[in-house]
Nucleic acid binder design. Sequence first.
RNA 1: GGAGAGGUGUCUGAGUGGUUUAAAGAGCACGCUUGGAAAGCGUGUGUGCGCUUAACGGUGUACCGAGGGUUCGAAUCCCUCCCUCUCCGCCA
Length: 421
Amino acid sequence: MLDIRFIRENTDAVKAAMTHRNADVDVDAVLALDSRRREIVSEAEVLKAERNKVSKSIGQMIKEGKDPEEIKAQVREMGDQISAFDGELREIESKLREGLLYIPNMPAETTPVGKDENDNPVIRSWGEKKGLDFEPKAHWDLGEALGLFDLERGAKIAGSGFPLFTGKGARLERALIQFMLDLHTEEHGYTEIAPPFMCNETAMTGTGQLPKFAEDMYAVPLDGLYPIPTAEVPVTNMYGNEILDKELPILHTAYTPCFRREAGSAGKDTRGLLRVHQFDKVEMVRFTTPETSEEEHEKLTLDAERVLQKLGLHYRVIELCTGDLGFSAAKCYDIELWAPAQDKWLEVSSCSNFKDYQARRANIRYRNEDGKPAFVHTINGSGVALPRLVIAIMENNQNADGSIDLPEVLHPYMGGITKLA
RNA sequence: GGAGAGGUGUCUGAGUGGUUUAAAGAGCACGCUUGGAAAGCGUGUGUGCGCUUAACGGUGUACCGAGGGUUCGAAUCCCUCCCUCUCCGCCA
């Protein structure tokens, strides 16, 4: 969340930022709560100081054998007033916090201003479109024919959007996960985490999924848990309410399945593996100081790109404009893979710098140069998400006979299999 | 799931209603001492919020797992919850 003091002192800038985001946020209502809160705190604390003083004198009187009943009655009255203040304060603080939780992050100064996804500039691209001398088949046809997945049976046991991989398709999932984890841990300096696949409400609030996006999450109400929509949630919140004494930056990578209800996107891009409710993903997370977060964000993005380069896949990097930026992000690059049969770019990674927005929500701090606690900056990105990666591999590397060549780096992970046929 | 024991500051650890302003020790920082170091001695050593200050800081308040309650006053008493450990049960 944003620092209430920042909002107080930069009200116009905050309002302008919300306009650029197309976010409907009542900044003035939050400021009014803040102003009332400070009023009450001041008044209540004067009373508390007085009460503490008089209470102490009661102890003294008892020791001296004097009768304290009259003074007790006075202090009791003060106590009633204090209770009234504290009651109102509790109410105001909870409203204020709720209000702050619904205000998205400030876009970074370098984030391009724009209305929607059509205003996202392309930053760079790598590779080029493969010239296939035949009509490319869609991955759903290739996959069913080669026995890589069985979407009908997946739907039977869980519903549509819950893919079931079979045989070499299942092995390909495992191979890709392992390849990416090895790359990030052995060459990019990340420490691997194997986190819980469910998180509590506090963790989900820390990274910004709750309270605003509750309808996008699966839930296990009996236990107060949510199946994670991304490893970002457990891996970021693992340091919640801590002052880190480790050297920054901290780099973590984690494989987890991800669970998303995809409410609101029903009927859009639903064929095959394009948009599913459960998918595998390797995530990267960096905890940095404010001074280095921009640089670390660039590095993390390159780490994701490296995965695609090693796999030999044509991709481009776009930057999200203010109107398309995610709720908690200040700056974000999306990486998209070219899929010939779809004739489309598919998003496989979203690399975001959250600055101190998540750290303030989750209360993740470090000690700055003065030794004072300060919020870290968090950065994360997919490195990368599997379903669309699998789509790109299948559709780009297909042959006229319906077989699929596997990228060389995967051969060892596939037990020597070089081609899906 | 059942029974029991616990949760105090960076750490160890005392504290069962009122100079506790959380003892003491360790650690850390600075200073003295020293040829240099160790030992010794001295001083300091948390976080959030409010007010104040140009700033350093000052001041008030809250914080002893979390949240409520009792009381003039709570680390201390009561209630609910969370977590850790031990034993039992169940179990991959």
